[in-house]
Design a protein around this nucleic acid. Structure first.
Lengths: 236, 236
DNA sequence: GCGCAAAGTCACAAAAACGTCACCCGACTG
DNA sequence: CAGTCGGGTGACGTTTTTGTGACTTTGCGC
């Protein structure tokens, strides 16, 4: 929702060679991705049915059903139609690449590949698959926040915010006039899986206000005692 | 999660290799676009005359009339002047890129490309309708960059840039006041299937700044902590 | 005014992000 | 084949950001 740092995703690796399988899995995990493994296309389809991954790494050469066929089936099913697929193909198999992509794969990586290359491809695919964030600038009460330019203007004057304060303000502005508990803010701004103290929110609110103070717009960020915080253009 | 709003459009694919042609067509159709095909520039011009497409995918290497010439002709005719063109160029053909843009293309995608990449570009081009012609010299904040002459002037003084720094600056200037992550910059400036460390971007930003420093214009290249880099003429 | 809970403030240490540098490597040149 | 140039990388220093605990202030019912 908020554009930020690394993306972590649940990734299904379909690869019959245990050594490669393990290698890939280790690397992905090290970079914060959730990894599940399948040793065959049939196994993969079963797993995908059970739980939709964010991305599928699909080896071209598989015992039994080929990667190509697997990709086709995934593309045929409306439920799995949109899951990004990256194919692992042998080097130089030009034909494979073409038919692989034709069958619905989103990208390909030729073996042997470096972990870095694989990660880069994954990142690229995940990033592009993500819908263009609410790219439009938010404006209220003399404050203007532009997510694309990553910039905040208070009465025309640039305001310097740290990443977290920026996200916090963005969230508050896009959900203004509504009270958000610290818990909610932690979920929305910090992320669901991050554990930090609730008091931390106070501090960042404080920093946000401090940054807005020179323009006098710090009053837009309001405290609702016993409930949380709210962004509001006065009287509402 | 991965389903953004997509626009569908009628797209003309000009590509002489049947395999690639089919690959592109299949993928575009899957994403709801209407696709018509042309195997040569002459054929393309004929079809365009008959029915104006929303977008043209134009291969650089074509038998007979080249993609370059084709683009020029389209741009010369007032009726077809505004139809967006995306050129498909071979990897690393630096010259192609420049003359391609010079001839009036709106964007280019280097082969080999991934469908996702292509779709992303298409969406981008369609979304912004017709962007500022990237063929012309860009000028902002006292900096002037001429892609054709491959030349940069800072307050009239020539600036010496390496190829990479040049492309980097070009990209930043043509997408100014917008934050680009290192990932994005690697994709856009280095190329789709090039794998280098993210830190490399830092270094080239540094070199770019160093080259601009004598003129004091290095402040145009700004760091946005936690997000990436931005070219901006202050306060915008 | 009193007491208590909630919120504000502050300083600090750890971590993350960035800037910078020197070096290596491959390509190209003469 | 030596020399040069541009580009990529790892290492290291610096700056910014961030979470936290300790402490103070504020608000509110009684």
């Amino acid at each position: 929702m908020f554009q930020g740092y690394r993306m972590s995703a649940s990734i299904l690796v379909v690869e019959d060679e245990p050594a490669i399988q393990a290698l890939i899995a280790t690397n992905l995990r090290r970079h914060g991705h959730g990894v599940s493994a399948a040793l065959s296309a049939e196994d993969a389809l079963r797993q995908i049915k059970a739980a939709l991954p964010d991305l599928i790494l699909l080896d071209w050469m598989l015992p039994g059903m080929s990667g190509l066929e697997c990709a086709r089936r995934l593309r045929a099913d409306p439920r799995t139609k949109t899951v990004p697929i990256i194919m692992l193909t042998a080097r130089g198999a030009e034909e494979d690449r073409v038919s692989g992509l034709e069958s619905g794969a989103d990208d390909y990586v030729t073996k042997p590949f470096s972990p870095r290359e694989l990660l880069a491809r994954i990142q690229a695919v995940l990033r592009r698959g993500r819908p263009q964030a609410s790219s439009d600038a938010v404006e209220a009460g003399g404050l203007k926040l532009d997510p694309v330019a990553h910039r905040v203007l208070a009465d025309g004057q640039p305001v310097n915010l740290g990443p977290t304060e920026f996200r916090l303000l963005h969230f508050l502005m896009t959900h203004s006039s509504r009270v958000h508990s610290r818990d909610q803010l932690l979920d929305q701004v910090w992320g669901d899986h991050v554990y930090v103290e609730e008091r931390t929110v106070d501090v960042h609110i404080r920093r946000l206000r401090a940054a807005l103070e020179p323009s006098g717009l710090d009053t837009l960020v309001q405290t609702v005692r016993g409930s949380g915080y709210r962004f509001s253009v006065d009287g509402q």
